[in-house]
Structure formats: structure tokens, C-alpha cells
Design a binder for these strands. Structure first.
Length: 291
DNA sequence: GACTTAGCTATACGCCAGAT
DNA sequence: ATCTGGCGTATAGCTAAGTC
């Protein structure tokens, strides 16, 4: 009797061309995958892959099986997921549970999802916590700046944000001094003790890790901006976040050519990728917004 | 070219939850 | 209480790639 799971394992092996990779993606062990495949091959009575060194090459039979069953399996999975998601409120718009850093959600994500035709149950948190919630199916999609390797979780880049040196309007650069020395002697406000972004900034431009001690640590970028306005120090902030303060001349940008880029990812379970509601949400979060 | 290392799949076997 | 299916651990066997 053919087991539905064998097909899911087969599809995974086909996509990754590797039993081990497929096992990681499905959160199973390699032997389990190997047995699923062996069982399916025995049932069909023909090899589905040629076992090449470090590679599984699909046979003609394997290719044929894949093209035939993939649409069927995916529509089955989509149907059951859809049912699960709409179970609580059959007539309402579908619900997507999104986790995000509060700043990005407020400044960027909100206006992209407003017309997406979904209901959004959101929560805020740092990358490691959100990714754990993805694993436990507590949230469907996480917006994150980190790409931690987790079995069964896929990432897609939605935006490249640019961090610029943001300072109070009265701040003055001394033109002759060495830039690194000058920056070293400033009062830095950091998002975290381990100097995220600032560390990258230093590495990128001065080829070393920063030896600075943050003057203030404030784990919220909007609050960091306020702190700069209050002359509490300087920091690196994403352009989109400081737009308004910039226009109102409450802060200014210095050394604009030294901006550092940072990628924003969407993380979601591989098995949810083909679900229409998830796809719709990903599409809207990727949409360009004009400022 | 010989040897080492690392990575891959297949197999043997034991454990455990669920079915009977 | 016993049986059974499916998973995990350990491991064998193979090969590519790196090192000398």
C-alpha cells in the first residue's frame, strides 16, 4: 500500500537532488528518507534515481512521476492548509500570522499589507525568537534580518535597507581628522550591546572590529532616532526610518557615502510555500513602496 | 600516486507509540 | 499483553577532493 509520505519524500529528494538535504528540509533523518524512497521504488518496481556520488539523478521514470504527482500533492496540501486557516472564521478574509521587528513593521510592512486582502495577526520580536515561532507554527511568516539555517525553513529577500550615519543637526565634522579616529571618539547609541550594524560598518570601511563602547544601548530603532534628536549621541539608522525627521531638520546624515546595506528576509516553512495565502502575503511584502 | 578527510547513501538493529 | 510500523542511532561502504 503506497504511503502518501513516500511521495512527499520523493518530491523533496527530487528538488534537492540529495537524500540528506531532503531529510533536513522535511525534518526527518536521512535513513527515514532513504527508506521512503526505497519503498516507493519497490512499489513502482523501477528505480527513480541513479545513485551518483553526492548526487541523486532522476531517471526518466523519476522525472515522469515527478511531473505527474507534483501538482496533485501541492493542491492537496494547499487544500488542507486553506481549510485549517479558515476553520475559525469561514466567511472572513484569511488570517496570516506575521512576526516582525517592530520598526520595520511600523515603517515599511504596514502600508504594504493594508490592501493585501488578508487579516494580519502580528507580533514583534527579535530574529531568534521569531524563527523559533516559525518552527513551532506559532507564526506563518517572519520578517527578519538574520538568515539562520533551520531545517524546513526557507528565506526570500524582500528588501535591502541602507543604514546611514545619523547625527543631530548641530553635529559638526572636523574635516582634517582621520575619519576612524573621529568616529571612535563619538558617543554611539547602539541597538544592542554586540553593536549590530555598527560592527558591520566598521568592518566594511576600516577592515576591523569596532573597539567602541556604546554610550547608550536602546533596542528600538525609533527610540534610537529620538535619542539622536535629544543629542544623546549618533548612530546608524535605515533611511526609511529617518525620512521625516530629516525633512523637519531634526537630524541629518553625515558621511553618506559610507552607508552600509542590510538585507531583510521573509522566513517561512518550506511546506507552506505554495499556499496561496502565504504567496499573496509574500508578494505584497515584496512590493516596492515609493517615498 | 598514496593517503587522509569529508560527505554521501544504504543497512542493521533497537525503541516506542498506537493498534489489536 | 502483544504485535507492528516507522523512526532514530550507529555504522559500513563508497567516492571526490585535498594534501603531501
Amino acid at each position: 500500500m503506497i504511503d502518501f509520505e513516500w511521495y512527499r519524500s520523493f518530491i523533496s529528494i527530487y528538488k534537492y537532488r540529495s537524500v540528506s538535504e531532503a531529510a533536513r528540509a522535511r525534518i526527518l533523518t536521512q535513513p527515514a528518507m532513504s527508506q521512503h524512497l526505497a519503498a516507493l521504488e519497490a512499489e513502482i518496481g523501477e528505480g527513480l534515481f541513479i545513485r551518483a556520488p553526492r548526487k541523486m539523478i532522476p531517471t526518466e521514470k523519476g522525472k515522469e512521476l515527478y511531473t505527474r504527482i507534483v501538482p496533485l500533492i501541492e493542491s492537496l496540501e494547499a487544500a488542507s492548509l486553506q481549510l485549517k486557516m479558515s476553520a475559525s472564521s469561514p466567511d472572513a478574509l484569511p488570517v496570516v500570522k506575521i512576526g516582525s521587528p517592530v520598526e520595520y513593521f511600523t515603517e515599511r510592512a504596514l502600508e504594504r499589507i493594508k490592501d493585501a486582502g488578508i487579516r494580519c495577526y502580528s507580533q514583534f520580536g527579535i530574529a531568534s525568537v521569531l524563527l523559533e515561532k516559525i518552527q513551532n507554527d506559532e507564526i506563518d511568516i517572519a520578517i527578519t534580518t538574520q538568515r539562520l539555517q533551520i531545517p524546513g525553513v526557507e528565506y526570500t529577500v524582500i528588501e535591502e535597507e541602507e543604514f546611514v550615519l545619523t547625527v543631530p543637526p548641530s553635529f559638526e565634522m572636523t574635516p582634517n581628522e582621520d575619519i576612524e579616529d573621529f568616529l571612535y571618539n563619538q558617543r554611539w547609541i547602539s541597538y544592542g550591546l554586540e553593536l549590530p550594524i555598527i560592527r558591520r560598518f566598521w568592518r566594511q570601511h576600516f577592515k576591523k572590529r569596532p573597539e567602541i563602547q556604546p554610550h547608550h544601548v536602546i533596542p528600538n530603532l525609533q527610540t534610537v532616532l529620538k535619542a539622536i534628536q535629544h543629542h544623546m549621541g549618533i548612530s546608524l539608522l535605515p533611511r526609511y526610518l529617518i525620512q521625516e525627521a530629516l525633512q523637519e531638520k531634526k537630524v541629518k546624515i553625515e558621511l553618506e557615502h559610507l552607508a552600509v546595506k542590510n538585507q531583510i528576509f521573509l522566513a517561512y516553512k518550506l511546506k507552506h510555500r505554495d499556499h496561496p495565502v502565504i504567496q499573496k502575503t509574500i508578494r505584497s511584502l515584496k512590493k516596492e513602496t515609493n517615498h
